[in-house]
Nucleic acid binder design. Sequence first.
DNA 1: TTGCGTGCAAAGGTTTTGCATGGCA
DNA 2: TGCCATGCAAAACCTTTGCACGCAA
Lengths: 131, 131
Amino acid sequence: MATRASYNTRPLRLIRETLADSEHSHMTVEEILSNLKERGEKIGLTTVYRNLDKLCEQGEVKKYRGDGGYCFGLADRCEHHFHLRCESCGRLLHIECEKVQQLSDHVSVHHGFRVDNSKTVLYGTCGDCAK
Amino acid sequence: MATRASYNTRPLRLIRETLADSEHSHMTVEEILSNLKERGEKIGLTTVYRNLDKLCEQGEVKKYRGDGGYCFGLADRCEHHFHLRCESCGRLLHIECEKVQQLSDHVSVHHGFRVDNSKTVLYGTCGDCAK
DNA sequence: TTGCGTGCAAAGGTTTTGCATGGCA
DNA sequence: TGCCATGCAAAACCTTTGCACGCAA
């Protein structure tokens, strides 16, 4: 099984750049497109999806479920933590905390379920919105 | 702000029954419909969505994100635990464990984020699929 | 030159909306 | 009887697929 050839194209570079530059480190396809548009770059919707798929297969990018769509982010930013999604403001926050890993380990050992930290999202209400 | 009137209709009763009878306690809209069909009952797709929305607003039902769609389940079954979704077989499992509550409490106290246990789903691989 | 990548248009699947009719209280 | 609920059809969304053309190596 030979590795398939792969080209370093303009859209691929732009998508990587956009994800790397993003503040919140997770973006919807729509956000990626409008971000590029602001910079005067234009690429097709289909191309974005296909490049993101490819990056996901390679493990460079992670795909998350959001409300009515997916979010994408660079995988290396999210190896060892969970994400928190605030249901009030919709933001996706990161939490780096050894307790999280402890829970993963516990679930793995005692419940026979291997948790993928980087894909898991805790839902709730963030501090700002709780006020 | 007066409470809006609400009727106890056949579709509403059927949907509640179906969710209450379901083994896995979470169903997609499609599953609800085919389940009813097997019992010889027929209600419209739109009606299912609208009743589920209403039940969610009242807090009687919880809505979960799944791949390419939503799952619904009775809220009172899921007050105090997380869910695990196996990405291999797609099943939604329950986990009742004090460690989970401990993590929620920790995140709430130390990270200022109030976790909604019943809406949160941990992603990973279940024991059966890991073999 | 080769064959992967692109982008448009169209298809697919799920959820929502509009509107006339039906049914609960 | 007065509203709310229903269900069909159509629209709205997000994502995927088909296909001819473009471009990286």
